[in-house]
Design a protein around this nucleic acid. Structure first.
Lengths: 138, 138
DNA sequence: TTACCTGCAAAGAGTTTGCAGGTAG
DNA sequence: CTACCTGCAAACTCTTTGCAGGTAA
């Protein structure tokens, strides 16, 4: 499958050698149509299940961090003991469902335009993230 | 100082007995005009410095968590290995300065009204938090 | 006196790192 | 062949918890 070429290029451009383990990670992250929200733990479990072998956490962490540096993944601001990542790197926001600790995308057009009227001298805005926490009605 | 009465009431209404250690925590958190953003570690360091004695982490954690449950403190959603709290419990948002890991308040009026146009069936919106990450121009 | 609290230290969870053998280039 | 990578385990950081002596009511 020539998708691997894309994965190899993603890895190389992130400063990583394309290895069997990293190709597996790429397949899981990028070989899909929909957005994928995950924690390292989710990813590790999925990899173990899909590949029937254990991929080292060292590899998973260094790969994910390189992708994040390169901008192929976004880290999401949630107050949680875990770090959440998102394969959707477009400008968008999130619902966080507190009942099942799940993230749901909120497209930019689903949110009225946000205007930040305060300026911090000498500082540049890097990102504006909106997190809408939701829970069951009860 | 009769401020202690207020602190004792805050503690009692949070289901906690007013002890010497907890009064010290209250003084540090609530005896001030301006907003206070902190991590448990910040708080612990300040307490040690101010009181010249070590207050147990167990006490700090159980006090802070009780205040948070009661709504006297807010937990802020930042992707960080640490948990940030805020003594400003009004509806407001934050800048997060990535250079020095510091939080800065963003009043509700400094942000244009945010309209969430997507609905999740059966789910109720608990909060809408905006985090504006900033860093030095360079 | 009783229930709760404190301090300490150990345990947990998530993440990071050091090292020795293995692999890409 | 060399530099980088993998797997493992140990180490680290932050947070939570168990326990024994101490304190508020």
């Amino acid at each position: 499958m020539s998708n691997n070429t894309i994965f190899i290029e993603k890895l190389r451009s992130s400063g990583l050698r394309p290895t069997r383990q990293r190709i597996e990670i790429c397949k899981l992250l990028f070989d899909r149509k929909d957005t994928f929200h995950f924690t390292i733990n989710d990813l590790n479990n999925s990899l173990t299940r899909i590949t029937n072998e254990k991929i080292s956490l060292a590899t998973i962490y260094n790969t994910i961090h390189a992708f994040k540096e390169k901008g192929y993944l976004k880290e999401i601001s949630i107050n949680s003991n875990k770090t959440y990542f998102d394969t959707n790197i477009s400008n968008h926001h999130h619902f966080f469902d507190e009942d099942n600790k799940e993230l749901i995308d909120l497209n930019d057009k689903d949110v009225g335009k946000v205007k930040i009227k305060k300026i911090l001298p000498g500082k540049k805005i890097k990102s504006v993230e909106i997190l809408v926490k939701v829970a069951n009605n009860n």
